[in-house]
Design a binder for these strands. Sequence first.
DNA 1: CGCTAGGTTCTCATTTTTGTGAACTCGATT
DNA 2: AATCGAGTTCACAAAAATGAGAACCTAGCG
Lengths: 107, 107
Amino acid sequence: MAQKQFHSKAGQFLYNRYIAGDSRREAQYEEEVINAEIARKIYQLRMKAGLTQQELAERIGTSKSAICRLEDADYEGHSLSMLKRIAAALDKRVEIRFMPTKRLRTA
Amino acid sequence: MAQKQFHSKAGQFLYNRYIAGDSRREAQYEEEVINAEIARKIYQLRMKAGLTQQELAERIGTSKSAICRLEDADYEGHSLSMLKRIAAALDKRVEIRFMPTKRLRTA
DNA sequence: CGCTAGGTTCTCATTTTTGTGAACTCGATT
DNA sequence: AATCGAGTTCACAAAAATGAGAACCTAGCG
């Protein structure tokens, strides 16, 4: 049971690579970060619950390949309905917040 | 410019009506609450930015009827991609969190 | 080695969300 | 009263997410 899963870390690296310098890429970067974050959170939640992808899939009524897709850091199709289903299956709830843009350089 | 828009309030009422007593409805209720909350947040954000539905629509590249739909408390189709587009247009960012279930009766 | 469990990838049909325009309401302005 | 601006509702086509099964990889185990 050893697959890709560098789920976490590498974040700092990615950050440096993107942000340092160019600035038009920020939006794009934000996008990718959010997607990767969600993927990681799902993975962590599933792990904490001690479930396999198959088991989680069964709980929310889908297939393991669908769960795998959700845990892929590059997946761009996350939807609220899916997050809610996962949260519900794991006895959590989803909270959405609009935060002020993380201004990196205080400028 | 006077439409439905009882955007906010009535929450307590709704809460009482649903939760008090029955418990199987909690999940369903949570759903509705989240949807209504998102609708309200979008509305508030737009207002704070001093934009009309038409203007916001143009900023994110859609039509005013689509924005109207998003601000409808009964709309069930909220997606992350849409929230991200709105956030971006209003110089905000979306944050998703999985919270422990709000246990009402501590039991 | 052969098997199995857990995970990943791909493809494709189905379902859901999104885009859009038209028609309509209501209040304000002229 | 006629017009206008802002919002709402509806229906339908286009686009995106989901469900699902098959094939695959790889560690660990008997």
